[in-house]
Design a protein around this nucleic acid. Structure first.
Lengths: 230, 230
DNA sequence: TATCACAAAATGTGATCACAAAAAGAGATT
DNA sequence: AATCTCTTTTTGTGATCACATTTTGTGATA
């Protein structure tokens, strides 16, 4: 129960122990390193991160605030379970949030930024072709984040990432069971719409992208896996 | 700098010190007890709450995760400032989130719940007539929360409350400068739509309610106050 | 009066410890 | 073999302390 393979993550100079723990755990959950129902302990993580309980507890508390973890009544700390209904709500919430965020970002995107976004989209395909699932997932998130963050007041971004974190554990299961990766996204469509500054078309492309494939994965497959995770 | 009038809040039995601190601070920010730019200290709050730094720090860290507070680079803890642009984004985000949440709740609302919601709406008018601003604000939040929480998987609710928290400090300023309270909401309209199970009409009523008056207050007045807060 | 330098106080950070509750394990009983 | 009871271990909680950084306060200098 205590192998605890935590994806590595560089620790920039001057970063506090707490911030490091938070970012590392957050990233781990975001890319599906923990399965639903997994329980973690403060002391265990403190040891794994070579620190002490105090900063780790703060990081865990923060992660519960954004729905990534859950403090149960019996004081146990677990990765939340996901029911099919909850999964459906999260996807619909992604669509509502991200199509809104995309629409509000269009006017602020420079040509240069759109080029950068196109480059990220290319890197997604590259990673998929190389079979590197986690890298493809991270690149896909970067694609979406880059668009929404063009808004000078990206108030929706933290909320979007909260939803991503809640979907993270599902992605972990999906990546375990999906051997074949295939590109099924609406990214080119979204980029074209960005170039035309067509807010509605961008929002529609993003909505379709989310609906048809969660982070590059086939939704039907994920739905099937949900039964395994329950 | 340390009068720190924290609204009282009962502490249920068995609640941890951390949870108590979190809920108390959260409630204080939500109803506008802190002004934008206000800085708080861990030790100061620990003393005010008659506890120690550890649980307070955890509570503050959680509050930053949901945008209610901000840890600056110089390690100072402040209530975030709000620019007019940021305010606009937050309002639009409220509209996007809450009209979505309302739409997703309609199918799950029982007649009994709708009656309860109607009663809450009545209490809002009562409080306004009595001139009790904070109580009216809390009742208004309860009205919205009651609707959205009808969804058995209310995944949007925490995100909505996050936005409320970010708007809280503005409400505090508004309440200081607005002497006359008047009822300008679309609540009856929303309730009627709920009774007809008309999802789109409910969503529209909620959107209009938010757009035309933030929590029962006149938006123009708030916009004017924003300049004072900057 | 304004500005700079230095000392003192305040503050966030993180490790440690004692305590209580929960979980896990061991052994006996049915 | 299953269940119950009691002991041991694990674990979250919260207070305290030492440390480093920041802020504040004081006084000298221009």
């Amino acid at each position: 129960m205590k192998p605890l393979v935590l994806p590595p993550l560089a620790r920039p100079d001057g970063m506090t122990t707490h911030d490091y723990a938070f970012n590392r755990l957050r990233q781990a959950i975001m890319v599906g390193a923990f399965r639903p129902g997994t329980s973690v302990t403060i002391r265990g993580l403190a040891e794994a991160l070579e620190s002490s309980p105090t900063p780790v507890r703060e990081a865990l508390r923060q992660l519960t605030s954004i729905g990534a973890l859950q403090f149960l009544e019996n004081r146990r700390i677990v990765v939340p379970h996901i029911t099919p209904a909850r999964f459906e709500e999260l996807i619909l919430l992604r669509i509502a949030l991200e199509s809104h965020a995309a629409r509000r970002a269009v006017a602020h995107l420079s040509e240069r930024q759109i080029e950068k976004i196109t480059a990220i989209d290319d890197s997604i395909e590259t990673e998929i072709r190389k079979g590197n699932k986690v890298a493809a997932l991270i690149a896909n998130q970067a694609f979406h984040r880059m668009i929404y963050s063009a808004n000078p007041d990206p108030v929706a971004m933290p909320l979007i990432e909260s939803v991503w974190l809640q979907l993270g554990p599902i992605l972990g299961i999906a990546m375990e069971h999906v051997t074949e990766l295939y590109v099924v996204d609406r990214h080119r469509e979204a980029i074209d719409a960005l170039r035309r500054r067509d807010e509605e078309a961008v929002a529609d492309a993003i909505a379709a992208d989310i609906r048809e494939g969660i982070g590059g994965f086939d939704q039907q497959a994920v739905a099937r896996l949900l039964r395994l995770a329950a």
